[in-house]
């Protein structure tokens, strides 16, 4: 079984690409030796809060340490105790790499009292070489995973509806005082995979737009997203829907990220390409 992963992104209208405060990353790991190699894939999508401190550094750190890296500590298992330990390690690293002196008393207090914050959707695909491939995901906040088979929605994780998007989602905070709350509110989901399935992970503006389309009975959205072939097509799609007059069909002007993952049959080895 092969995995094809593509990440599309578009910053808020009027903002430079460098101000995109989402982040996404994915990777594939082959584990084992002596003919017992197993393959698993992992991806993560995070959305830094607009009014957080230094969101760009926080989202970059979270995605960097969530996916497999050579010569690095193993990435966290997707269960509460391991994720709590990982959150704590991330907070320690954040503090270690922060400025020793701040530019103003406001910045000093922002760092200490508010810190940074991002929603997180992390997912692992396992059993890719076996008879029962599956996905397992963790979520804090309103970045949403959609599992689609044959043009129909199989699962939404977390199970949000169009009315569940607000300005105070759960997320991963840099404040150690939030560690317990983050762990308590983290959700875990899973599902079985089949050849031809799509997984879409979308930050809140696009997830909201998708869920409203589904609520209207419009499942053509899956064909549209599955057919996106170039970043410029994605940018046009997002910007067109930001300008739609009908409020129910309009996409909120926010940073938008869509990670699309397609499950494919094994390909001849000369066609394989590592992610």
């Amino acid at each position: 079984m092969q995995i094809q992963m593509v990440i599309f992104s578009e910053p808020k209208a009027g903002q430079a690409p460098g101000e995109w405060e989402d982040c996404a990353c994915g990777g594939v790991v082959d584990e084992g030796a002596d003919g017992h190699v197993t393959r698993r894939a992992r991806f993560v999508v995070v959305d830094g809060a607009t009014d957080a401190y230094d969101s760009l550094r926080w989202v970059d750190q979270l995605v960097t340490w969530f996916v497999p890296q050579p010569d690095a500590a193993p990435e966290p298992r997707l269960e509460p105790a391991a994720m709590r330990a990982w959150f704590s390690r991330m907070q320690d690293r954040w503090a270690q790499e922060s400025p020793a002196v701040f530019d103003s008393v406001v910045e000093e207090r922002k760092f200490a009292e508010v810190g940074s914050f991002a929603t997180l959707l992390g997912c692992e695909l396992s059993g890719l070489d076996g008879p029962a491939p599956s996905w397992t995901a963790v979520a804090l906040g309103d970045t949403v995973l959609f599992h689609v088979r044959s043009g129909h929605l199989l699962a939404t994780f977390p199970q949000l509806g169009p009315d569940d998007f607000g300005s105070r989602p759960d997320g991963v905070s840099t404040l150690p005082s939030r560690l317990g709350q983050m762990t308590d509110r983290m959700l875990i989901g899973s599902g079985s995979l089949a050849i031809g399935d799509f997984l879409f992970a979308a930050t809140d503006a696009m997830a909201h737009w998708i869920l409203r389309a589904i609520a209207r009975g419009d499942e053509t959205v899956w064909a549209v997203l599955a057919g996106l072939a170039h970043p410029s097509v994605f940018a046009s799609l997002v910007n067109d829907y930001r300008r739609v007059r009908n409020n129910q069909e309009r996409m909120k002007n926010d940073d938008v990220t869509l990670l699309r993952l397609r499950v494919l049959e094994d390909q001849p080895s000369f066609l394989l390409r590592s992610l």
Partner: peptide
């Protein structure tokens, strides 16, 4: 006013 300033403090060194 401090709360408004805190909300505006995005990147290090500038609001």
């Amino acid at each position: 006013l401090l709360d408004a300033c805190l909300r505006s403090q995005g990147e290090p060194g500038r609001a």
